[in-house]
């Protein structure tokens, strides 16, 4: 009995290793361009820095994407949509945050409409520093993410599932309620 469990565990581990190779080398990103850091992405994507040689590419919907890029400050309204998008993505999913606004609020530290710390609401795998981060920094951040996926360190999505109550409590504390009901939302 124990033997079969061990075997299954070994198979699962082997499969995990293989799939991590594929996941690390094929990252599709969902660019939900929240703030000004998004302007650095076209450079990183096109011929100057060429993101595609790392196997990265843009995708149209959260369902297809692997990594969610938070490019800059998040107002409450945007945070709500980001949570929708993040929860729609299929696991494993990663989250990369750009700039100081996601770290501690940045220049919007005293704004009534902009949150201060994104890691209170969603688990973040990689922070990219700079206001705005240069394309070199962006590429470096993506390289870090690839390394983390290979080393099994990019498990923010597992953290999110395990500590969902804590995240949900923070989200509700900031947003009031998660699903908004008004005339623009059925």
């Amino acid at each position: 009995m124990d033997n079969t469990v061990e075997k299954q565990e070994n198979i699962r581990k082997g499969w995990d290793g293989i799939s991590r190779f594929f996941r690390a080398n094929s990252i599709w990103m969902l660019m939900y361009c929240t703030g000004c850091c998004a302007i650095e992405l076209p450079q990183a994507m096109t011929s100057r820095y060429d993101m595609e040689r790392l196997g990265m590419g843009p995708m149209a919907t959260p369902r297809q994407a692997d990594v969610l890029l938070i490019t800059g400050y998040l107002s409450l309204k945007t945070l709500r949509r980001i949570i929708y998008a993040y929860e729609q993505m299929s696991t494993p999913k990663y989250l990369v945050a750009f700039g100081p606004c996601t770290l501690n609020g940045g220049i919007y530290y005293d704004s009534h409409a902009v949150i201060n710390r994104l890691d209170q609401y969603l688990p973040i795998d990689v922070y990219i520093a700079g206001c705005m981060p240069k394309p070199e920094a962006v590429m470096n951040g993506f390289n870090d993410l690839i390394g983390m996926i290979k080393r099994k360190e990019a498990n923010g999505w597992k953290k999110y599932e395990q500590n969902k109550d804590w995240y949900r409590k923070n989200q509700i504390q900031a947003l009031g309620e998660l699903r908004i009901k008004d005339e623009f939302h059925e």
């Binding site: 709500r80 609020g105 201060n116 209170q120 947003l175 008004d182």
Partner: peptide, 30 residues
């Protein structure tokens, strides 16, 4: 409501609204 969803304080663009205090109270500071 139009822009602010579930707003729970006084209207935010009045001069006597303290944006910093609201931010500190509502959003955790690092």
């Amino acid at each position: 409501q139009l822009f602010l969803e579930n707003w729970d304080d006084m209207p935010p663009l009045r001069k006597d609204f303290d944006s910093k205090a609201y931010s500190d109270r509502k959003y955790p500071v690092r």
